[in-house]
Write a protein that binds this DNA or RNA. Structure first.
Lengths: 217, 217
DNA sequence: GTCTATATCGGGATAGAC
DNA sequence: GTCTATCCCGATATAGAC
């Protein structure tokens, strides 16, 4: 909560937060550098002392979005536990990361402009993010915990649920999203409470929830 | 399949199809009237003989998107069957509508620009679309078929799954999406096959799948 | 109903003073 | 590191000939 700026100067941080908020409600293309600047209360060119391009702002936000989830996936890889338990922990914590970040990161990963312009590095990060879910689902399926379905399909369905966080009018909690996703995924939905308990009890490498947020820079 | 133009002139129809395709992959703001025109092979001002505004194109696409689902909801309302069965039928048929339309309608309903500009009428249509799902889920829950959860949450989770159709790289079928959604929704997931069969056997008012696509105009 | 030409505007980015 | 002023471009939309 107390403003975990992560490698960014306070000024750059304000730009990122403001931009994220505006992009979340208007989309990237419809968010001008003028709008961002005036929302902060500075002149438009001031932004360019912190980011040399408007695209760099979006790039930074993608990094802030996938950084912690990718890091967490790495930590979980070094823990011994069933894949389905790791997936539960990863999903809940990643959803909370998106919800609680001071930057409005939801919907950033689905920005269409990322797939049209020079965002190769960011697309690669998102590909890794998606890959984490596919790997978890496939492993859990091999261990008999996920019902018959293509792992890629299961992963896509789970990933789509992240966008539920973005709806402003009606808030759905990460816990509700995880429950829904897992009931849809599990070979035996009755095992959900047990899996949830095991996931909450996991202790990955990092101290706790708010470790380093940005490990990409 | 054979080009169901629905009240639109052939020329306007080509504009809509081309625009939908471009919007799906680049976003609305990033899709210029020049791009649309040149993709068709005409000069940019030619578009304005068919749509007096770029926004009118997006508006038409929203109508094409929600038209059939809203109509189908009306038809199902006049049928006697458990709400959970109606929801199954509505969801499968609506997903197929989005997938099979000659216009690439997926992601149109989540265009952020709709919530920023003069799109009050379109927002109302989307509100109705969402309302259909909420009503189905609530009714099915009252009949004991949906497990304990807020109907609004359940509806949001189901609606989010529509976007899975939009991922170009890996195609998830409507049937897979419905199965996942219903396993997550049902109080007793084991009843899914029975509900699916009942939904497929339903015979709503309209002749069949490809009735009037646009009932809004 | 299509074209060419053009008006008008807003957005990204730079220059240079302070 | 912020400002003002400005360049340049691309985008929507219109005018008017054919």
């Amino acid at each position: 909560m107390p403003a975990p700026t992560s490698g960014w100067s306070p000024a750059a941080d304000r730009i990122l937060r403001t931009a994220a908020e505006l992009i979340a409600e208007r989309g990237y293309a419809a968010t001008s550098t003028r709008t961002i600047a005036s929302a902060i209360g500075v002149a438009q060119p001031a932004i360019y002392k912190h980011f040399s391009t408007k695209n760099d702002i979006l790039s930074a936000l993608v990094g802030l979005g996938v950084g912690r989830p990718l890091e967490l996936a790495g930590e979980l890889a070094r823990v011994s536990a069933p894949a389905i338990v790791k997936l539960h922990r990863w999903l809940r914590e990643s959803l909370e990361h998106f919800r609680d970040s001071p930057y409005v990161l939801v919907a950033i990963l689905t920005t269409p402009e990322l797939y049209q312009e020079n965002f190769a590095a960011e697309r690669e990060l998102i590909r890794q993010f998606d890959g984490v879910v596919v790997d978890f689902v496939r492993a859990a399926q091999n261990e008999g915990d996920v019902r018959a379905m293509k792992p890629e399909s299961g992963a896509r369905l789970v990933i789509a649920l992240f966008d539920v966080l973005a709806v402003p009018e009606y808030q759905v909690s990460p816990a509700e999203i995880v429950d829904f996703a897992f009931t849809g995924l599990l070979a035996d939905p009755a095992r959900l409470p047990e899996i949830r308990a095991a996931a909450d009890a996991l202790e990955p490498a990092g101290i706790d929830g708010d470790a380093v947020v940005n490990a990409i820079d």
